[in-house]
């Protein structure tokens, strides 16, 4: 941790003045325990704050002290009130001769011990099965939660894609492998949705082969007056995702080439997969 930066971030003042979130508070207390310089900075600010408050104190009306001390002594009395137990009536004592009594006590102790052991065993088993059941439930719950999250992510992806498709401003440009004589895969197909108002470009991959290695990545190009302009790189994704690419104000055609990961400054035309003209 860069403690100097942390100390100067305003976290100290936030914490001391009670303005942190629960998360920030726990993190700060952890930092104070681990880094003496953080704790020292906190104390320095606390002392400055306290001294300033003492120096600019506003005395409350003098009669208030009596009221406060009286309220405190009422608190004190309430806390010390002792709950008196009702007197226990003396039990009927059966006098036994000492020997008999000792044997009786021993027998009673043995019986109690056996009962107690039995109960211990019984409750321990109950406890074990309850714990196992609980662990299982926790595990199941975690699985359900993680499945739910995955589905939710897919769903919001689909909703986003739908929004793009429903936008009436969209100019649709079909990019097909059949338009390119030298395409490595002439059956490739991808579609551009180009927002005529904002000029944002969205891409949907209909069918394109996955690159052979992770070193390679597809790159979208906009052809502007004969010059290819980079419109962003993308990976083939499962599902119906519509990918947002770079904003392109003007273009006559769009094309996709396979390039090294991260993209190239100019396209490698022998790796031109699909092309589509803006109609």
């Amino acid at each position: 941790m860069n403690t100097k930066e942390y100390i100067e971030s305003g976290i100290i003042e936030s914490y001391v003045l009670g303005m942190t979130s629960e998360e920030e508070r726990l993190e700060f207390e952890q930092a104070c325990a681990s880094y003496p310089e953080v704790k020292a900075a906190r104390e320095a600010f606390e002392i400055a704050l306290e001294n300033q408050a003492l120096a600019t104190a506003v005395a409350p009306p003098p009669q208030l002290k009596g009221l406060v001390m009286e309220a405190l002594s009422i608190e004190a009395k309430e806390e010390t009130k002792v709950v008196k137990m009702p007197a226990v009536p003396p039990a009927n004592v059966v006098v036994m001769d000492p020997n008999k009594r000792l044997r009786f006590v021993a027998a009673a102790a043995v019986v109690l011990f056996l009962i107690s052991s039995g109960l211990n065993f019984y409750y321990f088993n109950q406890y074990k099965s309850a714990t196992a059941l609980y662990d299982n439930l926790v595990k199941e719950n975690t699985e359900v939660a993680s499945n739910y999250k995955k589905i939710e992510a897919k769903y919001s992806e689909a909703v986003e894609s739908m929004k793009v498709l429903q936008n009436p401003n969209m100019v649709v440009v079909k990019m097909a492998g059949s338009e390119v004589a030298t395409s490595p895969d002439p059956s490739s197909l991808a579609t551009i949705y180009w927002d005529a108002a904002t000029k944002d470009v969205y891409l949907m991959v209909n069918k394109m082969p996955a690159p052979k290695t992770t070193e390679e990545q597809y790159q979208l190009w906009a052809l502007v007056d004969g010059v290819p302009v980079d419109a962003g790189v993308f990976d083939i994704q499962n599902g119906v995702a519509v990918l947002k690419m770079k904003n392109i104000p003007k273009a006559q055609a769009f094309a996709v080439t396979l390039e090294k990961r991260g993209g190239s400054p100019t396209p490698h035309l022998e790796q031109l997969y699909v092309l589509g003209k803006v109609s």
Partner: peptide, 12 residues
């Protein structure tokens, strides 16, 4: 405690 801090707390 009251003598020492009531003024500071009252001001806050």
């Amino acid at each position: 405690l009251y003598e020492r801090y009531s003024g500071a707390l009252y001001s806050s």
